[in-house]
Every structure is written in structure tokens, then in C-alpha cells.
Design a protein around this nucleic acid. Structure first.
Length: 269
DNA sequence: AAGAAAGTCAACCGCAGGGAG
DNA sequence: CCTCCCTGCGGTTGACTTTCT
């Protein structure tokens, strides 16, 4: 098709952002809101491509970002979500308010992978590694919840949930639909046959940054409307059930939700 | 104290999906 | 219905920092 480059690469900066660039970007977004990333750099006086601006904002400058260490609860939630969703970092990030997909992806690759390996669990398949000596050596059990340690007795803090009513069935993904899934590993058996996700979570408000006062006060433009639409997209949308009975955007959340895993062909949780 | 190795994380790249015209 | 544009996502890279020898 001949995709046009996202920007004039010859006149754009690359690499680390300077404080001045950050300030320009923040100031522009505060004044005009997010969106239209392609034209933003020029409008904001930045010699960056739109993608770079978006990334910088999403991963670093957004005011609602939570910086700092992940808690053990965060770790376990990420592990469970990864077992459920695979490398869908944006979806996983959506369940961890204030965290970005990039941050979680990095954290997974640098910390959690090792943590799982030390437990004798394959980070990709979430199944015990053959031999399982690592787990035995580390003194950790892999018997419960597909290798996950039993949840701590203390109640888990409230978390957003992927809430799917019991009567919802995901469309069976075709190989072409899901062929790019990077979940990897063998599909001979369910990845987490006895996975007890313990996701006693609930959908929280979208964690999109606050819109600009000006934008909120004035009649929304189509762009702003689009932003608002995006901001209210629920996880049902991501999982392909938006608009159906499962979608909590339309109806109050009924009780008795459960997870369904659409990622592995022909297999559901 | 210096150099090497390992770890961390911000940023880039290319692709896919959705929507507008 | 088709084409093109824009946005978002996931994988990867490379610079920087920390730890080890």
C-alpha cells in the first residue's frame, strides 16, 4: 500500500526527551487535550513525531501515572492477568490504574519472568517447567492455582475487574484472528487448567487523564467526543463483547461474573 | 578504584485495526 | 466496497545505572 511515514524523519528529534520538550508537551495537552497526535508536534512546537509525543505522554507525563515499585499484590495480579490474557500488555495495564503497558511489559520481562522461573513456572505457558526442580529447590509449591501461591489470607485490595456475565460466550477465535498471539508455548493442554484467578475485582472508573477545563466547559468537538468515547471504553470492548449483554457500559453489573478466556483456540476458562 | 557484567527502562519500529472519505 | 490515514499495540533496542569481580 505504501504507507506514508508518520512524520518527517529528517526534521525530528529522537532519543531522550529534554525537560523543555516535556514542558511543551504538557502545556499543549493541558491547553488542548489529547488527540490528533499527528498534528500535535507541529502545533506544540516540538520537533518530534506524533507517535513519540503520544508515547512520552502515555508512558511518562500523564498526571495519573503511579510511579514507584510494584507491590506483591500487583505482581500476583499481573501474573494472573498474563495467564489469562497473554502478552496483552495494554489490557493488563487497564487493570492496574496508573500503570502503563510499557511499564508492565518491562516489569514482566525484568522481574516477573525471573520470579516465575524461580518458582519453576514457565512464564509463557504458566505451567510447571518440565522437571520442576527449580520449584522444589526454591521450596515453593506449584500445586495450587497452576503454580501460583495461595492468595494471602488478607483480603486483596479492590481492583478493577474483567467482568463477564455467565451467559456470555466469546466467539471462538480463528487461527487468523489469533494467529499473531504471542502467548507461545504448547497448546496441547489448557495453559492454566486449574487456574483460580480469584479476581474479586470490580470495574473502576476509566483512568484517563482529566480533560482540560476549557474542553470540559465548551461544546465538545468531534475530536473531544472521540476522546470521551475512548475514555469510556470498557474491557468488554477489548475482549470483543462490547455492546452485548456483557457490557457493563450499558447495564449494571450482574452478580456471578466469571472469566472466559478467548485467547486459546477452542479453549475457554 | 576501575573495569566488566548484568539489570533496568525509556524510546523506537513496524504492523494491524478501525474509521472516514 | 475500497483506499488511505491515524492511532494504538507489542516486540525490540540501546543508553544508562547498579552490582560484581
Amino acid at each position: 500500500m505504501g504507507r506514508s511515514p508518520c512524520c518527517e524523519k529528517a526534521h525530528t528529534n529522537k532519543g531522550a526527551w529534554t525537560k523543555e520538550e516535556d514542558q511543551r508537551l504538557i502545556a499543549y495537552i493541558k491547553a488542548h487535550g489529547e488527540g490528533c497526535w499527528r498534528s500535535l508536534p507541529k502545533a506544540a512546537g516540538l520537533l518530534r513525531c506524533g507517535k513519540s509525543c503520544r508515547l512520552r505522554w502515555m508512558n511518562y507525563l500523564r498526571p495519573d501515572l503511579k510511579r514507584g515499585n510494584f507491590t506483591d499484590d500487583d505482581d500476583e495480579l499481573i501474573i494472573k492477568l498474563h495467564a489469562l490474557l497473554g502478552n496483552k500488555w495494554s489490557l493488563i495495564a487497564g487493570q492496574l490504574p496508573g500503570r502503563t503497558d510499557n511499564e508492565i511489559k518491562n516489569y514482566w520481562n525484568t522481574h516477573i519472568k525471573r520470579k516465575l522461573l524461580s518458582r519453576g513456572i514457565d512464564p509463557q505457558t504458566h505451567r510447571p517447567l518440565s522437571g520442576g526442580s527449580a520449584a522444589a529447590a526454591s521450596g515453593l509449591t506449584t500445586s495450587s492455582t497452576a503454580g501460583f501461591p495461595s492468595p494471602s489470607p488478607a483480603p486483596r485490595p479492590a481492583r478493577p475487574v474483567i467482568a463477564i456475565p455467565p451467559n456470555v460466550m466469546f466467539a471462538r477465535p480463528t487461527p487468523s484472528e489469533d494467529g499473531h498471539s504471542s502467548s507461545g508455548g504448547s497448546t496441547d493442554a489448557p495453559r492454566c487448567p486449574d487456574l483460580n484467578l480469584d479476581l474479586d475485582l470490580s470495574v473502576g472508573p476509566p483512568c484517563s487523564p482529566p480533560k482540560t477545563p476549557a474542553a470540559a466547559a465548551s461544546t465538545p468537538t468531534s475530536q473531544q467526543q472521540q476522546q470521551q468515547k475512548r475514555a469510556t471504553i470498557c474491557l468488554c470492548y477489548h475482549l470483543g463483547v462490547r455492546g452485548g449483554e456483557a457490557c457493563s457500559c450499558k447495564t449494571a453489573l450482574p452478580a456471578g461474573f466469571r472469566f472466559l478466556r478467548p485467547l486459546e483456540e477452542g479453549r475457554y476458562i
